[in-house]
């Protein structure tokens, strides 16, 4: 079969991507359901012995964050404070408020006792040391 560039296929995949973005992509089992409206966005990277996770949560204090690790599932709950009070007139209201929960499936096991979290200027950084079994190991080659 010859493969042509098919604009319909492209449109289809664009639509899928768009819908997944809106609906949170729970149906196709993505490990990282897309961040919905107001959901704090995350970045995740590998730092040899640890997984690093960063989240932008401006306006949130450390006591308004709840982090838990169970197996491969990392749950971060944040409570974004609301400044609303009676009799205020809003000219713009774009900042998300309320409770948000992100559940992320980690790519490898981590040592849940050694997870460290730091909050600086609205940026939450998690250091998740990998479990012994998941650590990279250098294998010597005998000659």
């Amino acid at each position: 079969m010859t493969v042509y560039f098919n604009p319909f296929h492209q449109l289809r995949s664009e639509m899928d991507r768009l819908l997944n973005g809106f609906l949170g992509s729970t149906t196709n089992g993505g490990a990282y359901p897309a961040a919905g409206r107001g959901q704090p966005a995350v970045n995740l990277w590998d730092q040899n012995d640890a997984l690093m996770l960063e989240m932008e949560i401006p306006g949130v204090k450390s006591e308004q964050i709840d982090i838990s690790v169970a197996g491969l599932d990392l749950t971060v709950k944040v409570q974004r404070p609301d400044i609303a009070e009676e009799g205020l007139t809003y000219h713009r209201r774009e900042r998300p408020v309320g409770d948000f929960t992100r559940v992320l499936r980690l790519p490898c096991e981590v040592d849940s006792n050694k997870v460290a979290a730091e909050l600086l200027n609205g940026v939450l950084t998690l250091t998740l040391p990998k479990a012994e079994v998941a650590k990279p190991r250098k294998i010597p080659v005998s000659s």
Binding site: A31, Y32, V42, N43, L44, W45, D46, E54, E56, P107
Partner: peptide, 12 residues
């Protein structure tokens, strides 16, 4: 993060 950072997952 440096430019050479390779993300496992990046949203922002």
């Amino acid at each position: 993060q440096g430019n050479d950072r390779r993300y496992l997952h990046q949203e922002y």
